[in-house]
């Protein structure tokens, strides 16, 4: 009996391989879900010297997940966990830069809730790297593009424009976004200051052109105010101002378009393709 018992090994091994491959196929067909990681505080308390490596491993895990997503997967199915994980990773290891770029690429566009989450994550990056211009740029862009909060975007760009390496474009962005938020007089004053601070004649000319346009928009705002005072209500559309309060609405060509969020008149850059 003892001698023959080993003969059963071959069929047993075959059976094991059969079950193994069956299990492997079952797991291959299952949809992989991104698992939420524990809180940064818990990880910091338990991992000690390995906390940086762990943050990087969790980041790699999320990258592998994102890389393996099937085309057409609804981003809202994984965005909450992804946002949670990036929040924890960046809180655990704020100096690690990749999660900020990934949060901007994979979260901000999903919806307003996730644009806000991306901005919270980017706030960690701004704290760790106060002189990095990419993070305030992303934050400002999210406020402007995904959250439609031009004044918040302007505030972020204003802070960034004070950084030593900030390009003049940041200060100009502040003006453009402030104008979109309806603060036209402030925008005109800022543009005048910007115009005086540059020696480049071409840029000076561009600023002067914008000042003229902002002044035209300001005239529309004044007309809307007069309309409101006389008729005790705001106009439904700006067309109602013509011809009693304005001879015609100004045309800004491709540069700007008027916005009307009663009682505020704003100027915004037209979106490409719209």
């Amino acid at each position: 009996m003892k001698r023959f018992i080993h003969l059963f090994l071959a069929p047993f091994l075959g059976f094991y391989l059969f079950v193994f491959f069956h299990q492997d196929r079952l797991y291959r067909d299952t949809v992989v879900q991104l698992q939420p990681i524990p809180s940064a505080q818990f990880l910091r308390a338990t991992t000690g010297y390995l906390k940086q490596l762990l943050a990087e491993v969790f980041f790699a895990q999320s990258s592998v997940f994102l890389g393996g997503l099937k085309p057409g997967t609804n981003p809202e199915s994984y965005a909450p966990v992804l946002a949670h994980n990036y929040r924890q990773i960046t809180a655990l290891y704020p100096e690690f830069q990749d999660p900020y770029y990934f949060a901007q690429s994979y979260l901000a566009h999903v919806g307003p809730e996730y644009a806000r989450a991306a901005n919270e994550i980017l706030a960690n990056g701004r704290e760790a790297y106060p002189e990095n211009l990419a993070y305030p740029f992303f934050q400002g862009y999210n406020y402007f593009r995904h959250l439609e909060q031009p004044l918040e975007a302007a505030a972020v760009f204003r802070e960034a424009s004070y950084l030593p390496e900030a390009p003049p474009m940041f200060a100009h962005m502040v003006i453009i976004l402030t104008a979109e938020g309806g603060m036209l007089e402030a925008s005109i004053l800022s543009l005048m200051a910007l115009s005086k601070s540059t020696d480049d004649e071409a840029i000076k000319k561009m600023y002067q052109k914008e000042i003229e346009m902002f002044k035209k928009a300001l005239a529309v705002q004044k007309a809307a105010n007069a309309y409101q005072v006389e008729r005790m209500r705001t106009p439904t559309t700006l067309d109602e101002l013509v011809p009693d309060y304005l001879p015609a609405l100004p045309d800004f060509g491709q540069a700007f378009e008027l916005t009307w969020k009663p009682p505020v008149v704003g100027l915004k850059r037209p979106m490409p393709g719209k």
């Binding site: 010297y49 940086q52 490596l53 990087e56 830069q97 990749d98 770029y101």
Partner: peptide
Amino acid sequence: FMDFIPRNIGRASADFILSVGWL
């Protein structure tokens, strides 16, 4: 593992080397 770190390769590598040392 470094293949999964697109940007901060230097930082992740140094962390990894020292973490292995610690382990």
